[in-house]
Nucleic acid binder design. Structure first.
Lengths: 366, 366
DNA sequence: TTGTAGGCGTTATCAT
DNA sequence: ATGATAACGCCTACAA
């Protein structure tokens, strides 16, 4: 083993992997027949196909998607970027995406930004390097670098959980400003005038900020200026409790607290109970999210239900439909057209939300 | 444009993607230098590196991971397979995995089996076709096909959420039999003798079955045979309610109900309340999972806390450590050794669980 | 229907 | 340090 081998001299790696060529050799056919068989079993003669099948089975052949995707210049993978997986909303959406895409044989590449826009840019760049079939990102507010990346990529881009801004190809979500407005209207209708809004991470989580803005603006139209309290990065019942204490100090006659999410609201409920402040008689409390415990806590919590699963489902369906259209059109164009993976149309879907009235805000103030 | 072009004649696709070659041309260096720069910027002379950097930036070059991984025969991707993403336990684990692997620049490929072992096989096969750096699966019970696939792959395999069976490379989890035993011991200690176990999907969800088995066996040692009720595929509070009704019909003097999860337990709680059966005075109730609402429901629920996030973290850490070891060893071997990506050692980590005693089972029976 | 050959965009080897 | 050049494993236009 020194210098008298010319061809296989520079074998680079062990790579003991079973290849298509191995299968072909075993079945005594050419590699392209195997390839064809794999993609369209009908197209190969009934004489060869059992031979090929048997060779695949006995060798335990697993096709190499990397090579396949490289050659075919497309990958059956969908990149999904969410702010956080610690958040039940997003996991629910991801579950729906996974389920629907899985049915159509697409893989999910998953990433979390932790609410950091720079991190999002990195993730987008990484995902694009996989040549995914499509990219799904959360929200429609991105930094310049991300927008450029997304615009230049010849990949359909779906934005979810929020609508607004200029869409890339698809937006599926709802207006968080409207959520704030609806909650404000509800509390105002209950006769509350001394009102606080308790939120967390509202600079980083733009959607939370929008809910706050909608809330404040709507009340402003009634001449009410709510007290706004930001618990910073702390999204826990404890933080909600602290916020209520703070709010009561600043405004002793407080009548209503709208929380940016159910977790904080639960803390407000606990703290109110702790100081003997009856809910809803003395204090109305609302949340956002309709988490499972929100209907079993005492008293049950008025909240807003976002359609998390539906968002995922719609995103997947729309994207799948668009991909199908692209494919059909590409067939038509022949090879020449330089179509950029965008069917041309951009679509915006508002899935809305639901205000769920429960006991925690059922009292009328006079 | 007909027949007088020899070289570029068969360009197969538009593929307008910016390639490494483009960058090299722009920077007036060879592609190898660009590749080198990308992988180890220090190794290239300070004269070239700024030129390369600028070319990359102006062209907006995004490396093609498919090509890179194919050439390098490895992929910075980790395949993760869980039974379901609708299940908070697993999403928590996935979140932890994502976070830890992300820190080390690995992508997550995500799949869900919906508790179907055949589906698992398919997913494993698909994931293997991506040449992932490692594979993480849930549970250590697989069908023969899956086991073969996993054994033949030269990829480290981690099994999580369960320990037992023969491990492939790594197991991180806890004994579900022990969970059942501990719950049984608790209820027995409270003096309960007429006991029911309410579970769902216990054939498909092997871990739920193990909890039941541990529970029944432990009670059997005290001469008690619990009534076992299976709600089938229905994992909802409503199913829990139905189960309680059924149990009371079969055993009117029922004193305690252990549920396979908190969701069912919540339903049992509701139903008991509905029929004026005081918990815990007349009926002890326990769950599994320690979901957020379990401490705020009335009465607070005795349950078992699995360390979902810790499982994910440990899996990632152990896997990362093993990969590092493999890499080091590979360096040592030179090229010759046919090491199969297994550091050789197999490791089993029991992360345990925690019994959380609350009011729903605090009553002593006599 | 089946086979042949060139190319997909990298990495890694080797020579300079 | 830099640059040719051969793999990597598969797809696909084209020829047979």
């Amino acid at each position: 083993m020194s210098q008298n081998n010319k061809t296989a001299a520079r074998s680079r790696r062990g790579t003991n992997r079973v290849t298509m060529e191995d299968v072909a050799a075993r079945a005594k056919v050419s590699a392209s027949s195997v390839s064809l068989y794999l993609r369209n079993p009908e197209a190969v003669s009934p004489r060869l196909s059992p031979r090929i099948k048997r060779a695949i089975d006995t060798l335990g052949y697993v096709p190499n998607k990397l090579a396949g995707s490289l050659a075919a210049a497309r990958t059956r993978a969908i990149g999904v970027i969410v702010p956080s997986l610690a958040n039940a909303f997003f996991t629910e959406t991801v579950a729906a995406l996974q389920k629907e895409f899985d049915r159509h044989d697409y893989q999910l590449l998953l990433g979390a930004t932790e609410y950091d826009l720079e991190r999002e840019t990195e993730l987008v760049r990484t995902f694009l390097s996989w040549s995914p079939t499509a990219l799904v990102v959360t929200g429609c507010y991105h930094n310049e670098a991300t927008r450029t990346l997304l615009r230049m990529a010849d990949t359909p881009v779906a934005e979810m959980w929020e609508i607004g801004e200029e869409p890339f190809h698809l937006q599926v979500g709802f207006s968080h400003v409207a959520v704030g407005e609806v909650l404000a209207a509800h509390l105002h209708q209950q006769g509350a005038t001394r009102i606080a809004f308790v939120g967390a991470r509202m600079e980083a989580d733009r959607r939370a900020g929008q809910r706050r803005d909608g809330f404040c603006q709507a009340l402003a139209r009634h001449g009410i200026t709510p007290l706004v309290i930001d618990t910073g990065n702390d999204v826990s019942p404890a933080a909600g409790g602290v916020a209520l204490r703070q709010a009561l100090k600043q405004q002793p006659g407080l009548q209503a607290v709208a929380c940016a999410n159910d977790v904080l609201a639960l803390g407000v409920l606990f703290e109110a109970q702790h100081r003997g402040m009856a809910v809803p008689q003395k204090l109305a409390v609302t949340g956002f999210g309709n988490l499972p415990y929100s209907q079993v806590c005492v008293p049950p919590l008025t909240t807003v239900q976002p359609h998390a699963a539906e968002i995922g489902l719609r995103v997947a369906q729309e994207l799948l439909a668009q991909l199908q259209r692209d494919e059909a059109q590409q067939q038509e164009d022949g090879d020449g057209a330089d179509n950029n993976g965008n069917g041309g149309a951009t679509k915006v879907v508002d899935v809305g939300f639901e205000l769920i009235l429960r006991q925690s805000s059922s009292q009328r103030f006079k």
